[in-house]
Design a protein around this nucleic acid. Structure first.
Lengths: 347, 347
DNA sequence: TGTTAGCACTCCATTTAATTGAGTGCTAAC
DNA sequence: GTTAGCACTCAATTAAATGGAGTGCTAACA
């Protein structure tokens, strides 16, 4: 048996209807809902076929049909119309200062949760190139010095160092010169022992503090690697009865508590084909999710880029009967806007 | 009617038992559970009295008794034994570097959630004195300069400034000198217009950038004022059936999503009497909570201090039948450990 | 050969009734 | 003041009855 146009139309009608209502869809409903002008009996025959083919199932003998993962998959792959979304307000969110990236991400993920009414998550962008732009050591008080580290993409990090030895202003200036001539523009993975030992030699009696700074750089990078995940709208799962029962809700909320594990969900393989909006948008339906706790959910992920190779992932989690058209549309639109803001700059 | 010793013992037995089981407690149970050697009939009489006095109620005519808010209040005020808790691991958490305060708070709140099995929250400490310690402007690249602002308590903030005019190294040095001589040690609220205009005069043609830096300082302070709240263990509410039903769970999870509102819960009035561990620990039982969404919960709050006037609040949220002894004990112990680490330093 | 009306059948969901049992209040005796 | 005894109450559980949405199948029709 194979999928003909009429079957596809019926399947689409079933799915559309189920997305709206969340109730199993009967043959009579479809008979009226579509413009196919077929009696419920005919629809019943077709539905029996669609069930045999695995696109829909009955929760029990005398109920209507609901889509299977395979059904949704077919819908998403061939019938979905990702409409561009109005996201006027988001522009304000995105235009927040670059040096308040965290706030921006928090606002963004909150905005998306409110807009879509699903649970949302976003990973902080991780630097692809990891190039050092600027390093500076400053005296804060007698025994504490502040190392400021700026990376490509204007990621700024601070580390406070406890230092016993006194360093006079002139030496400090020299050390800073040394740090910047050696490290500026350098890719982090290229900082090897020979460079370090050369710097230490040049620093003379202050080689200790140079080690400290370099250690700090190492730490900062490491820190950046266990990626931060921001979430919002986890309470939205209570909007969908199929997720709101105790078992499910508990599992999902727990999953959202474990940011680290969540992150792993987001950094799955992404299609690297092409450029521009729509790239890297992925839909995981029900059982397709890597995580067991998400087996009754669908997850839509999208990569985003803030320029300078700063790349992260957004995830939107809802019930299987998520409004895929809207969610994918929203993410596409968001990507477009980000492109407008950051993409252009790069050229 | 008044509370005599025997009534108190019975009330205590009822509460202890209810805390454990979560089931209404009957007279027979108490008759056996206590060493009072009284028959269930006598207990029944006493229970009737306790009910009349408002310490306990029956969920329905033929059920055992459960404590009222007033009953818990009596227990907490007069019978609780806040035992010191073993919190060996927490020391590692607390000893994290000061310049990674956020990480420390996240770890701490997570630790407490795991230890107590309740939902936890913590506000980032807000600076009481708000004194500037150090300000520095550095060139990152041609058009962007970095303002580093360090406040008393080693709170470090960064702001990236876009600057059109070129500033040579020497000028930069001078500007930094100017910034620090004028601003170091200064309380933020004392930076007034006359100081600003004096600085601008001294900066000459570079007065613009000085304004920028001062604006940045203002922003940084403002930013610090809308306090960050970290939460953990919200999934723990599902451990307690009385909180886990859809209505309640949904409300609570929503409340925990709204960090800002949560914060208000935490910064209610605190008893300012005395010093040392146990100070500023507050218990809010059921309806005593300011927030409607917490009406079926009890909240225990404690202030904490990291030295240098850095003060914040911890909150632990559980069911009414929370293990008050343990929670209060845990918070006291935590305060002691913080005192050990930070308190000593100050003298 | 595809479509449709008709009908018996299935099974979940909801309502109603019956049963159980923990726990009480009250009385009367100690 | 304490306690045994007993009738009573009421939530919770189990069982039975009812209703209805929706199906599959058959037979007739275009």
């Amino acid at each position: 048996m194979e999928m003909d146009e009429r079957k596809a139309k019926i399947l689409q009608a079933i799915i559309r209807n189920y997305l709206e209502t969340g109730e199993p869809v009967g043959s009579r409903t479809i008979s009226k809902y579509t413009d196919l002008n077929l009696s419920s009996a005919t629809i019943r025959n077709e539905m029996a076929d669609l069930e045999e083919m695995g696109y829909i199932v009955q929760p029990h003998t005398s109920a209507g049909r609901i889509p299977t993962d395979k059904g949704y998959r077919f819908y998403v792959d061939t019938m979905m119309e990702a409409k561009e979304q109005e996201l006027a307000e988001v522009k304000d969110v995105l235009l927040q200062r670059q040096d308040r990236l965290e706030d921006m991400l928090r606002s963004l993920v909150k905005f998306l949760a409110k807009d879509t009414q699903y649970a949302t998550m976003i990973t902080a962008p991780s630097v692809q190139k990891n190039r050092l732009k600027f390093v500076q050591l400053s005296r804060v008080d007698e025994h504490s010095y502040l190392a400021v580290i700026v990376m490509e993409g204007n990621i700024i990090k601070n580390r406070l160092l406890a230092v016993d030895e006194a360093i006079d202003d002139e030496t400090l200036l020299k050390l800073n010169m040394l740090l910047n001539t050696q490290l500026s523009g350098m890719a982090v993975q290229d900082i090897n022992l020979s460079i370090i030992s050369r710097m230490k030699t040049q620093a003379g009696i202050h080689s200790d503090i140079i080690s400290n700074v370099i250690d700090a750089v190492g730490e900062v990078i490491a820190e950046d690697e266990d990626l931060q995940v921001y979430t919002s709208g986890t309470d939205n799962i209570f909007r969908y009865p199929e997720l709101a029962d105790q078992q499910n809700a508990s599992q999902l909320i727990s999953a959202f508590e474990e940011k680290q594990l969540l992150g792993n969900l987001l950094i799955g393989e992404s299609d690297e084909s092409g450029e521009g909006p729509g790239t890297g948008i992925q839909v995981y339906i029900g059982g397709e999710n890597a995580s067991q706790s998400m087996k009754d959910c669908s997850v839509v992920t999208a990569t985003y880029e803030l320029g300078d190779g700063l790349r992260g992932t957004i995830g939107i989690v809802g019930p299987r009967r998520m409004d895929y058209d809207k969610v994918v549309g929203t993410l596409k639109t968001l990507q477009t806007k980000l492109d407008d803001i950051y993409g252009r700059k790069e050229e």
